[in-house]
């Protein structure tokens, strides 16, 4: 396993009390595997990614659990050691490609800088590597484009540059946080395929954080569904999508609009989950989903379910006890 996260708990200490944003999240990612982490806003998926990169900002902190990168604990490293790991062994891709690139430098300069920070190569070697990276992420005429500034690239091309930047030092793990959300649908497919191919070719583990089930369906090998800071269900992507065990996952899948062909009743109502994700200061007792769940019974309101095997998945639900 490249990444192992065990019982991760992230807290925010505020003057109104301690808020638990991520509570007991456990998962792992194998080489070449894409783990999709999906959830609605406030589920804690981005925070989990941020904690793994070691960029959690105070008052947020890892209160319990551990994060291991290739067997080595990284959640308690000092800042400087973590900074060396970032970029070198963990690459990051964020939602907005424009803010990930410095507008004042050419993309070539930024690539060469990053390469030379992490790898022991001379300037011409670094430039050669930068060129091959740009070629690999599918930027046409990289020899000409390498000396361009970020604003001279279109949105999709910019996200490709960001991916090249994340790949500079051949990281073992890539954290991609909503990498396609800012892009138009027609570009999304391009970026998703690129990400998937790179993970396979390089044996890189990818943690793909997104709210978009469609992206997960096409990219991920396994998927973890988060709700109110906890993992509700985790399993192979096919299983989770086609045979969701947790009522939240099932509701989530049902609420995604799908294109229906002529024979269907087109305006049939979507499956809807009533209510909204609880706020962090009001997480329900027992199973956090119980107030919105149609299948909840008394135990759900009192005891918190742990993920347990159900078919090929792990689901945190008392229905399967």
């Amino acid at each position: 396993m490249i990444l192992e996260v065990k019982d991760l708990r992230i807290e925010f200490r505020t003057r109104h009390g301690t808020l638990v944003a991520v509570d007991g999240a456990s998962f792992s990612i194998a080489p070449g595997e894409v783990l999709g982490v999906v959830g609605e806003s406030g589920a804690g998926k981005s925070l989990t990614g941020t904690a793994i990169i070691g960029l959690l900002e105070p008052p947020g902190r890892i209160a319990a659990g551990e994060i291991r990168l290739e067997g080595e604990r990284i959640d308690n490293l000092p800042y400087e050691a973590m900074r060396r790991i970032r970029g070198r062994r963990i690459g990051a891709i964020f939602q907005d490609p424009l803010t990930s690139l410095n507008p004042l430098y050419t993309v070539g300069y930024q690539l060469v800088e990053t390469i030379r920070t992490h790898l022991d190569v001379d300037a011409p070697g670094a430039r050669a590597r930068a060129l091959s990276l740009l070629r690999e992420v599918g930027i046409p005429a990289p020899e000409a484009r390498i000396d361009h500034y970020p604003h001279q690239f279109s949105g999709g091309m910019r996200q490709r540059v960001v991916i090249a930047l994340a790949l500079c030092a051949e990281p073992r793990l890539i954290i991609a946080d909503e990498p396609t959300t800012a892009l138009d649908v027609s570009i999304q497919a391009q970026i998703i395929q690129l990400l998937k191919r790179l993970a396979r070719d390089h044996g890189t583990a990818v943690m793909l954080i997104t709210h978009d089930m469609g992206v997960i369906a096409e990219t991920a090998d396994r998927v973890a569904v988060m709700y109110a800071g906890r993992i509700a269900e985790i399993g192979p992507v096919r299983e989770v999508i086609r045979a969701a065990r947790h009522p939240y996952t099932a509701g989530l899948m049902g609420s995604i609009p799908k294109i229906r062909v002529a024979t269907d009743r087109m305006h049939a109502p979507l499956v809807q989950i009533d209510g909204a994700m609880p706020r962090l200061n009001a997480i329900p007792s027992g199973c956090a989903f119980h107030p919105r769940c149609g299948k909840s019974f008394e135990r759900c309101t009192k005891e918190r379910p742990e993920p347990r095997p159900v078919g090929a998945n792990l689901a945190a639900c008392w229905l399967y006890d």
């Binding site: 027609s186 999304q188 497919a189 391009q190 469609g214 992206v215 086609r242």
Partner: peptide
């Protein structure tokens, strides 16, 4: 046609999105 092809396949029927070359 391109827009329709770009819609993610949630039924997991194995159909791949056809990536379209170029951008707006």
């Amino acid at each position: 046609r391109m827009l329709l092809d770009a819609v993610p396949d949630l039924e997991m029927s194995g159909r791949q999105r056809t990536p379209v070359a170029g951008e707006v």
